[in-house]
Design a protein around this nucleic acid. Structure first.
Lengths: 193, 193, 193, 193
DNA sequence: TATGAATGAGGATTCATTCAT
DNA sequence: TATGAATGAATCCTCATTCAT
């Protein structure tokens, strides 16, 4: 990504997360990037193209961060814990990107189908780990597709929690809570025994 | 809601869930509803106004369905189970509405803030039950705001799971799995003992 | 004019003078009049028709007020003086009507041509008096059509003066000044002689 | 003003004077200007903005014409005469502009208030000269604000006279008559003495 | 006489995209 | 590579008018 394209990339994240994809205009993005509108079309084929590029870059980053971390781990439960941590941190570091992504997952149009396909690729990573965990008897038998969806939705929607609390929350706390919740559930267990 | 307004309401749900709010046009909605474009504006102030009305009606329905069910329940764990069941069923029965709702939760504009406020109201119901459950020692101590967000996100995102499986899924199965997951977590427990 | 029509008439004057004819809507006029929109169409054929009725009624009133006053006057200079007084007072008493009238005199469309024709009828009254005055050697020979136009424009535009001074002006003072100006001009005359 | 903006400017004057501001459409103006509708919005923010630009340009031109002429005059009576001449000629040369201006002076909306403010600026020029004239004992003491309004209205409304006579009038004749009328009034004076 | 729900033609405005420079 | 003036299809919204009651 050269200098100009990067300026556009950052401006697009900024503007689109602020106003939503459809309410963002090429003018605004160009303005924010400090380039002429025509320049956008030199680097991207269309407005949709910018969005696709954004999503691809963001998801690639998330995937690579996760794979890098869990690469040399052996224990699948540990891997899942790490994914929760990485995804939580990613949520806060790249909040604007995540907002754009989440706003695009619910449509029935072709472009949104393609975004969901990319999410499925990501979920596959999680599913594979769940599989491992089941095999290793670290994780209960379960519907792994269902679980990975739930897993993804649970963490992502925490961004709503973040809105509600005006951004003053601690990613560590979130990750810990989600790990506890995910592994042990909310059922009360008498610890006095 | 009179006859005409209801025709518009149904057409709007249909069109907007299909194409997304911003790609839906007033012409299409009017066409689908079988009324003239001007009639839309006789019953609603603006396109936004239709969306707001949709969200309000949908969330009211969900809330009333849940409150009706848990009204005469005593056990808070039972109540949470019921909420999972109702919300899961709602997800499948009113999939189109849920898609519209989910697509609107991630923006920073005033209208989306207002939608999130309405979600918070809904989450309050869940939080109160969690509180009860903690008091009754049926549920572990936890961050209830965080948990209710996670809870909502987990169930909602199952709609992605549904997309992935081309709609051939069983709401019962989903509800059961989510209940199991939520209460006991995914940690393997040796049942041979 | 029956009760309902009068309510509409007054509401129309009010709304149209406030927002201008084209920015006024039938809804607003009906609202202000306290009747249903359909009722407007029972009493008038169209929006234009309301405007025409307004102008006709207003100009008739002005004409009748003037004719009543100058009817038994003999001296044409006195008559002109009286016209200035009446027209000045009319300007302040029926300011809203005058504003509507003045806003309509400058177009090239058929309806505005018709309004100007009505103004010409009014100017004829003045011209005839000027004629008398010239014959009686009370008024200098002049282009009476030009003069009556100037005369009308001069008084009417005083409404601009009124705007500028936030309505706190004295019609008497205006009438006196215009009379003095009209008859003697602004040329300095040495009164010490 | 660049080439395209000038084309729009001329087209707007033409169309708006013909049909009135509110009955003129952006389509018509674009057509007449020989540009696409979007081009109008590249050069102006809105339809109102075109009107404001028109009024500003026209009044600037009138002011500069007058100031240029009276700049090196000493005698204030001469200056007033010159203003009458210039304004009369302007009336005929830029009849379309004057019609647009006059149609906009009578409303109570913000935009019309702003137009009147601009007229007040113009009237100030006249007032100052009246002041000078009074000081130099060339003009009788009078209410200069009232007089400048009357003065403006008198000349402007001659456009009605022009309508009435189907445009076949002589600006020279008008200017002469108005000068005579303004300075000496219409009172008969026995010249045989 | 009076109502007000429904209409639909009309108009202002937006904005992604193009292209000559 | 980069620009920005120009485009015009698309879209929201307005509002005078109609008509069944």
């Amino acid at each position: 990504m050269n200098k100009t394209k990067e300026k556009i990339f950052n401006a697009a994240i900024d503007i689109i997360s602020q106003k939503g994809f459809y309410k963002s205009t090429m003018d605004e993005i160009a303005d924010k990037a400090g380039v002429a509108k025509g320049t956008l079309y030199y680097h991207f084929n269309s407005k949709d193209d910018i969005l696709i590029f954004l999503i691809d870059e963001g998801l690639s980053l998330l995937k690579s961060q996760i794979l890098e971390k869990i690469n040399h781990m052996k224990n699948s439960a540990e891997k899942l814990r790490e994914i929760i941590v990485v995804q939580s941190n990613f949520l806060f570091k790249y909040k604007d990107f995540v907002l754009i992504l989440l706003s695009q997952l619910w449509g029935k149009e072709e472009i949104q189908n393609s975004f969901r396909e990319k999410i499925y690729d990501y979920l596959k990573i999680i599913e594979d780990i769940i599989d491992e965990g089941i095999e290793e008897k670290l994780i209960e038998k379960c519907d792994k597709k269902l679980l990975s969806s739930a897993f993804f939705g649970m963490i992502s929607s925490l961004i709503i929690f973040q809105f509600r609390n005006n951004d003053v929350i601690d990613p560590e706390h979130i990750a810990d809570s989600v790990i506890e919740y995910t592994f042990n559930g909310i059922h009360y267990r008498d610890k006095s025994l």
